[in-house]
Write a protein that binds this DNA or RNA. Structure first.
Lengths: 182, 182
DNA sequence: GAAGTTAGTGATTGAGTACTAACTTCATCG
DNA sequence: CGATGAAGTTAGTACTCAATCACTAACTTC
């Protein structure tokens, strides 16, 4: 297998491992095992552990962006909003690692920023802005609608992360106001 | 100093340390140093590191709840909403560790749930539900308004964690729709 | 002042960690 | 055939960390 292909599978493995353990608690050993390769070899493909985490977060953001843009393609306004909401819900159910990785990313960036490292946050902010702009366009360039959409998305992230099961009363407000499922 | 008082200061120190490093990357040594006590003594006050983290998250949630209930006291409806929004913004600015700890908590619970440990999530969900109910009451028992309020709150958390500076265009939607500052 | 308790420490251990250096295997090509 | 270079491994280093243990100093009770 070529180094480039390996790097690909390392990124995929890193996403699932980092998603479950966060940055610090995930060992490069665990990633290597999932890839099916020796642990030191990872350091041929990436300069260090941080680079693996960064690659994983970037990939994760890009994948999420793609889910939105694919869902909204050819639609606009209310229809686009509904399609994106449904697509995001499907993403969370079908590929929970993406959501977990997102939460780990937020925590990691927050910690990095708090301790003076603004480099990591920079790339994440750029990815987020891209996602914001894409959703913004799909929703007809309505700023407040974009903000509201993302706000509900973040609440979904939080409640899902906390493990509130579907049907729990804490979800009831979604049917009345945002209707992301319907 | 009595053990109970010590336990108090350990919790406070744990909040700031865990907030900046997350669970795994924070050493008990760092907490002990901040308290001004030897590292082994922490294990007289708490059975293990997890218990310190749990105590920190519970305290953090309780403090946040108190911010809301204090702000909304004697008010209702639109006024209560505005007061709580302003109070939360002040909390984030004045005591950023509370927000960081919250994000670390979400990531940690998500990871725990994903790997089959539902005990940690249980206490966090309970604390969150309490907060939800308090806000719900303050907002006149309007479910969709409560959900919207919390949704905006979670977006604020995310954007702040990512380090988007005040005045960045990504915040513009807040003035038009939610007006949590104004 | 003996008996007992409470707050606290120093030394240590054993497991796990990121990362390095040096070696091997093997397909390809002149 | 023999050389080259890329893919991958084994062995190892230097370090960190949670948790335990045996101990002490100060206080309280009677």
């Amino acid at each position: 297998m070529s180094a480039e292909e390996r790097r690909e599978s390392v990124i995929r493995a890193a996403i699932t491992e980092f998603a479950r353990g966060g940055y610090a608690a995930t060992s490069t050993q665990a990633i290597a095992k999932r890839v099916g390769v020796s642990q030191p070899y990872l350091f041929r493909l990436f300069p260090n552990k941080q680079a693996m985490f960064l690659a994983a977060t970037e990939r994760c953001l890009a994948d999420t962006r793609k889910v939105f843009s694919d869902a909204a393609e050819g639609l606009e306004g209310e229809e686009a909003l509904h399609a994106m909401a449904v697509a995001y819900q499907r993403l969370i159910v079908d590929d929970p690692d993406k959501l977990l990785m997102q939460m780990q990313m937020y925590a990691a960036v927050a910690a990095a920023e708090a301790s003076g490292d603004h480099e990591f946050g920079e790339s994440t902010r750029a990815g987020w802005l891209q996602m914001w702009d894409e959703i913004h366009l799909a929703l007809g360039a309505d700023v407040s609608e974009t903000t509201t959409f993302l706000a509900y998305g973040m609440l979904v992230n939080t409640l899902t992360s906390l493990g509130f099961p579907a049907g729990h009363r804490i979800w009831s407000g979604f049917y009345e106001s945002a209707r992301p499922i319907a």
